[in-house]
Lab assay of single mutants.
Amino acid sequence: MPVRRGHVAPQNTFLDTIIRKFEGQSRKFIIANARVENCAVIYCNDGFCELCGYSRAEVMQRPCTCDFLHGPRTQRRAAAQIAQALLGAEERKVEIAFYRKDGSCFLCLVDVVPVKNEDGAVIMFILNFEVVMEKDMVGSPAHDTNHRGPPTSWLAPGRAKTFRLKLPALLALTARESSVRSGGAGGAGAPGAVVVDVDLTPAAPSSESLALDEVTAMDNHVAGLGPAEERRALVGPGSPPRSAPGQLPSPRAHSLNPDASGSSCSLARTRSRESCASVRRASSADDIEAMRAGVLPPPPRHASTGAMHPLRSGLLNSTSDSDLVRYRTISKIPQITLNFVDLKGDPFLASPTSDREIIAPKIKERTHNVTEKVTQVLSLGADVLPEYKLQAPRIHRWTILHYSPFKAVWDWLILLLVIYTAVFTPYSAAFLLKETEEGPPATECGYACQPLAVVDLIVDIMFIVDILINFRTTYVNANEEVVSHPGRIAVHYFKGWFLIDMVAAIPFDLLI
């Protein structure tokens, strides 16, 4: 008679799926529990143990900040960024110097990925580790590398530091407007667009060049630039800015003055950032001319202004700041037409079709709590990747769950009947059967004279019903998954307890 339990259901295979997918890609990662103190490590794979030199037993239950890997060259700011990422709910990448158990130093890129439950609360953290440099290539500990984003994938490793954006290309926007319009339909740009040429040739750093990471940081200074100062900065030398009595002219307006920039070969870094931020506020060169004239017309309804409409929906549905990093990277690809469009465009503009998908598509409701890094690593669709929660398995109709209350009560009843059979069957065979043979035949009273025979008949009927119930009862397979398919249940029961239950259900007393 089957006594099969499996009270692990309803099970959740999400954690096993993450481990299996990460292991298949030869990654070095740990999984931490966000619900406990210090976000203790609950799993670390073999790749991480080989990377740091510690065994799994030495890593388990330690804080996922990996303070046991810190050393003299470990930056405090990087460690603080990892700790801050564990307090938030967004994906974050941090470069930090770690030390192995043998004392060797290596520069590592740590990717902190939160995993949320159905309520939107962070319950786990996945920390992925990628070695960037070994100890002989690690720089000085005073050099802070965590304020910069990861290198873009479309640049060669040897040319990542030679990417320079020439400031004269930004200063000569109005001069290039006529050349853009003359391109017409034969050019790649839309009317009114501004073409910015980027020099990728390796050259020595000069005062006129600005690194790509500095251009990325310009967006942080746009908020500090007032509207009046932006307007004066875009007017140009024809209309000098008016300053109040006793007030000095704005240095932001002076930063885009061609006369002032041409007199000296070098520009201050602050002026460069502010000038680029001011130019980015204009949607095209037409807006710059309109600002000089004193009238700013409404933005025209053409394809170039609607190019950012799908980007707005993608940004609203993005799951991490990696989408913004990807957008900034692609927006700086050289030799393309940049349409400086305000994100607050007309909502009635139709979304044009684009061959290049900048932001990841909208994630469906079932995966809105899973970050983009987890979705990318697992390579699963929205119909396959579940949320991290207890999910009731989908069972067929008329199927009994093996952990249901009805099955528990039924098993206790069958257990009592088995005990009765084990006690009274030998007793009936030894004593009652002998008395029946010696006594007179009682054929007239039937079952009324033999109450134990009636009980034995009921017990046999219950055993037959138990066999039928076992054909529709779920079970737990070797992978700790609840199986509810009727065919698989029948095959599993035939290979197991079916023969024993059938022999126990045969009414031998009635056959004798």
Rank of each mutant, 00 (worst) to 15 (best):
G6R: 01
A9F: 14
Q11F: 12
D16S: 15
I18Y: 07
I19S: 02
I19H: 01
R20P: 01
G24E: 07
S26D: 15
I30Q: 01
A32N: 01
N33G: 06
A34V: 08
V36G: 07
N38Q: 10
V41G: 01
C49P: 01
L51H: 01
C52D: 01
R56L: 01
R56V: 01
Q61F: 10
R62L: 10
D67H: 08
D67Q: 15
L69D: 01
R73C: 08
R77I: 15
A79D: 01
A79S: 07
A85L: 01
A89M: 14
A89T: 13
E95K: 12
D102K: 01
G103H: 04
G103L: 08
C105Y: 13
E118W: 15
D119A: 06
G120N: 15
V122F: 03
M124I: 06
F125G: 11
N128L: 11
N128K: 10
F129R: 01
F129D: 01
V132R: 15
K135N: 10
D136M: 15
D136N: 13
D136E: 06
V138K: 10
H143S: 09
N146E: 10
N146A: 11
P157A: 13
A160K: 06
K161W: 10
T162Y: 06
F163I: 06
F163E: 15
L171T: 15
A172K: 06
A172H: 06
S178M: 06
R181W: 05
S182L: 05
G186R: 14
A188N: 06
A190W: 13
A190G: 09
A190I: 06
D197V: 01
D199S: 01
E208V: 06
L210C: 05
A211R: 11
E214D: 13
V215C: 06
M218H: 10
D219H: 11
H221S: 15
V222W: 09
A223I: 13
G224K: 14
G236L: 07
P237Y: 11
P241M: 12
L248Q: 15
P249H: 13
P251E: 10
L256Y: 06
N257W: 12
D259K: 15
S263V: 08
S263F: 08
S263L: 09
A268Q: 15
R271W: 15
A285R: 11
A285W: 11
A290W: 15
A290I: 06
L296T: 04
R301L: 12
R301G: 14
H302K: 14
H302D: 11
G306K: 04
A307V: 11
A307L: 12
M308E: 14
H309P: 12
P310M: 15
L311H: 07
R312I: 07
L315F: 07
L316Y: 07
N317W: 09
T319E: 14
D321G: 12
L324C: 13
V325P: 12
R326N: 09
I330P: 14
K332H: 10
I336P: 11
L338G: 12
L338K: 09
V341P: 15
L343G: 15
L343P: 12
K344T: 07
P347R: 11
P352Y: 08
T353H: 07
T353D: 13
A360P: 15
V370Q: 05
T375N: 04
Q376A: 11
V377M: 09
S379P: 04
L385H: 09
P386R: 01
